[in-house]
């Protein structure tokens, strides 16, 4: 499984290199679609908070897009 994580890290490094490529991305006047509320990465924070609480209470893994916290986990 560590190998799997390393593979993902390599993918991440690749993505970072891609991110540095100036051929990606858009000009400021091309951000109309990106400006839509449903295109924001955290467009529904309360849905995510409620889902995260449910999954945190019932599963061994949590977090990923933010800090999950240790929690009590007593239910």
């Amino acid at each position: 499984m560590r190998n799997k994580l390393r593979a993902i890290l390599l993918l991440a490094a690749g993505a970072a290199l891609m991110g540095g490529c100036s051929s990606l991305g858009v000009k400021p006047w091309q951000r109309d679609v990106l400006a839509r509320q449903d295109m924001q990465l955290n467009s529904e924070p309360l849905d995510q908070a409620i889902d995260d609480h449910m999954y945190f209470s019932k599963e061994a893994s949590s977090g990923g897009r933010g800090f999950a916290g240790g929690g009590c986990g007593c239910n």
């Binding site: 400006a35 839509r36 924001q40 995510q48 999950a68």
Partner: peptide, 21 residues
């Protein structure tokens, strides 16, 4: 918007990398 959920990362606060919302 991004930080509404506490613990949301700074990365998420940069949604759309500066796009107007």
């Amino acid at each position: 918007a991004s930080c509404a959920l506490l613990g949301a990362t700074a990365a998420r606060s940069q949604d759309a990398a500066g796009a107007a919302a």
